[in-house]
Design a protein around this nucleic acid. Sequence first.
RNA 1: GGACGAUUAGCUCAAUUGGCAGAGCGACUGAUUUACACUCAGUAGGUUGCAGGUUCGAGUCCUGCAUCGUCCACCA
Length: 712
Amino acid sequence: MKLSGPYDPKKVEDKIYKLWEDSGFFNPLRLTAQGKLKRKKAFTIIMPPANANGNLHAGHALVMTIEDIMTRYKRMRGFKALWLPGLDHAGFETQVVYEKKLEKEGRSRFKMSPEELYKEILQFTLENKRNIEGQIKKMGASTDWSREKFTLDPEIIKIVYGTFEKLFDDGLVYRGKKIINWCVKHQTSLSDLETKDTEKIDKLYYLKYGPFIIATARPETKFGDKYVVMHPKDLRYADFKNGQKINLEWINGPVEAIIVKDEAIDMEFGTGVMTITPWHDAVDFGIAEKHHLQKEQVIDFYGKLLPIAGEFEGMKILEARQKIIEKLKIKGLVEKIEENYTHTVKTCYKCESVIEPQIKEQWFLKMKPLADPVIKLIEKNRITFIPEHYKKISLHWLKNIIDWPLSRQIVWGIPIPAKICATCQRAIVDIEGNKYTCVKCQGILKKDTDTFDTWFSSGQWPFATLKASQNKKDFKNFYPTDVMETAGEIIFFWVARMMMLSLYVTKKLPFKTVYLHGLVLDAKGQKMSKSKGNVINPLEITEKYGTDALRMGLVMGNTPGQSLALNEDKIKGYKNFANKIWNASKFVMMNLDDYNPNAKIFLNATQKKHLKELQKLTKECTKLMDEFKFYYAAEKIYHYFWHSFCDKIIEDSKVWLANDTLRQSTQYMLLEILLQSLKMLHPFMPFITEEIYQQLPIKDKKKSLMIENWTK
RNA sequence: GGACGAUUAGCUCAAUUGGCAGAGCGACUGAUUUACACUCAGUAGGUUGCAGGUUCGAGUCCUGCAUCGUCCACCA
């Protein structure tokens, strides 16, 4: 008797994972060489590249579980199954993590050379990469490690550069002097997706501006304001004409202001008049562009006032704000101050410091020409969204898309292969790095020191990974991929951009189905966060209850798109289930000593009925698996195994086994049900099912349960 | 302001698309050398958020409302 005692995952998991890896069956090409099965059709999932900057968290564990279930199921169904693993350098995210580490050590990135910083983060990332690879294996992921890709692999960078050049040649990528979101702490620009709105209570100042009263929450930006804007239909200001000049007394003395009429003004807000600061406000920038107005920088990139502020030069925003108001009060220019003015401001999604809009020359990607063809294909249902409502969400975003700022002023990332003429500011792509003088003005070309937004490289992941493969036919064989499974949270960040960039480069949508899962929450349904101290570490859970139990806990009751509350009691329940499987298998095998697999079998009516029920269950489960209803299939098989097989069938069989005429058919029936159950359980609980399978006395046994045929 | 989702047993969620409201966890009652106490047999627990409508039949479809959550836009 090989199965003894209670099930102990620690004795099984590492050994079984090694058996799988050594078998080579994670590699779809090795798979095709096995057995009679032809495996003509491919099934491909590209793993969302995990950020190589920390440990595996509950969200990753969910990704690994769901994608492994899909892959194992399809592999057993006879597909040439490829699940391609990857890791992400995760530009900004990783740099932020590393900066926090530096802060703790009392160091600062601003005191390091870019080369020094890059080298340190690279080492940090490579260490974490190894770490997280081990953790992915711990989850039982049947990914093809021979095809693993990292976003900084030279072959990947080459492809990313190729796309950038193609976009440049097609006029879709351009250098623009536009307003961007600037994080003063991190010293980089951010896309709109990388900012979040935070509600703040500030003061709203009503200031006398010549004949007008203007309301502002940011007096410190007002030095450069020489345009006063009102709605053309506002009768209160009908006497003032567009372009009219007026002289007035302002913070640092007399200024000449120009009247501008624009529909962007809300007549209801404040006094219906405002002055604009095009350099530091997106709406103001829009107005200034429309009317060709001058723009002046008032605040520098460190959040300090520039010489234009006169005596306030060099002061930080909040300090200056107070002092300016004091001065304006003395000058009698403060009409009133509204306390407790609630408004929302954009903040950096990582450090929550208030975003300072700035005008900066950057690389931008024109999105509309990329989005339009994707919109058409989505509307034609050429891609399936699970759950369905993500179709609407995606379409809405794509239809209202704005240009994407690609440049980031951080060292940790893929350098933008571009040069800028020091004389005429002309920007060119230079992948080889062998262009030195401007063809237009003979000026000296300087290398762009910015890096790409990390999503620009991961946005090319489905085709880049396959094109960069050492197996030259991979792209042809496995692209477009079948399923993209990822968090609903990053539908815009990542999924939408993958669709656009992949369609642009390969002329095909990168995947047929998008499966989006929700968040993994704590037992009380709260979002996990370090500050709340409610983070569930998946590795501690596997240590305590076994990987199979964690996987069941993550998949049971988890419908697509919906967030999942994970509690330990639930996982404990599946640990018990694993033990149940173990003991039932032990019971079956205990009674097989005299079993002859080649004997002729005569089943009685009840036994036939049991096998028929099993058949029915298999059919149902197959249908549910095909419909991506893993939570439901898992529940069915769980319930069958415990409450039909164990509680009823095994109990009945105890009498039959003691009966000479029924013994053989009972043995056959038990083994058959056990084997079929193990097959159906395998995608969900791969370790324990494989361990038991290895010990079953069956005919035509495969090297691994992984490549057994799923019975339909 | 716009969109999307959720609301079902004490808790976490299902209900295979309109066909007998069901699991797990928890609670309660009982069993006891068993493949398994990481067990077994059983019990309680529901006006499916509210109000209408369609239908032979509604948790499911339609209309309105409420509450919670998420996303997007705007905010001088």
